[in-house]
Amino acid sequence: MSVSGLCQICEARPAEYRCDACGTLACEMHFERERGLCADCVARADPTRPADDEDVDVHRF
């Protein structure tokens, strides 16, 4: 699937993927290919996962 635009999580890198759960456009750093989920959905699906994981940035406001 072709995805264009910026990552909707970091708003800095080009989006390469679309989250299967919520449709968010995500870059390589904010997408878990094995699950097909963006970093936000991964965090919601697995609340025990550390927020400071090296390969996923989680923004909380």
Rank of each mutant, 00 (worst) to 15 (best):
D20N: 15
V42S: 05
P14K: 13
S4K: 08
I9C: 05
P47N: 05
L25T: 01
T48N: 10
C7S: 10
D20V: 11
R60C: 01
C10A: 07
D46L: 03
E16N: 09
A15K: 08
A39G: 07
E16H: 09
C41S: 06
D52Q: 12
S2T: 14
C38E: 09
C22V: 03
H30W: 04
A51S: 04
E11Y: 13
R49N: 00
A12G: 06
L25F: 05
D53A: 13
D20S: 15
A21K: 14
L37I: 05
T48A: 11
C38L: 05
A15F: 08
P47S: 06
A26I: 00
L6M: 07
A51F: 08
D55Q: 06
F31A: 04
A51I: 01
I9W: 03
E34A: 14
A39R: 02
V42E: 14
R60A: 03
E28M: 02
R33C: 13
H30N: 15
V58K: 06
C10S: 07
A15C: 11
R13P: 00
M29K: 09
E16C: 11
C27R: 01
P47I: 06
T48Q: 11
G5Q: 04
C7T: 06
E11I: 03
A21H: 12
C10D: 15
A51M: 05
